[in-house]
């Protein structure tokens, strides 16, 4: 199974977390599940790196966390996007689009020759 999935590129995990949380607040396990679903088991997220990433984003003020009752009735730590988190997500998407666009351009050039 690990052979069919590649590890998530450095720096993109933060962006994916922000993207997931921009839809609705979620707890760590929920985010992990959502990552699995969205990436359709293509991208391998080491769950050990998920929590440090969440805390890093919280510390930067892009996320805020509250203990709330989860769907199972037990209290879980729910993360949600702050205003500056939304802003950060927009700028990350923007630079991602520009980066992939540039890379695509280079590949297209190579194909044309």
């Amino acid at each position: 199974m690990p052979s069919s999935r590649f590890p998530i590129p450095q720096g993109t995990l933060d962006m994916l977390i922000l993207q997931i949380l921009s839809l609705e607040p979620a707890h760590g396990y929920g985010i992990a599940q959502r990552l699995e679903q969205i990436s359709k088991s293509v991208v391998q997220v080491n769950q050990g790196s998920l929590y440090p990433a969440l805390h890093r984003l919280e510390q930067r003020g892009w996320l805020k966390a509250d203990w709330k009752e989860s769907e199972t009735g037990r209290e879980a730590k729910f993360y949600s996007l702050t205003r500056s988190g939304h802003k950060q997500l927009r700028s990350e998407i923007d630079s991602w689009v520009r980066l992939t666009g540039a890379v695509q351009l280079i590949f297209d050039e190579g194909a044309a020759q």
Partner: peptide, 14 residues
């Protein structure tokens, strides 16, 4: 303590 609780929740659910 907070982190332990958070991780425990994850472990139990998983």
């Amino acid at each position: 303590g907070d982190l332990d609780r958070e991780l425990q929740y994850h472990i139990d659910r998983r």
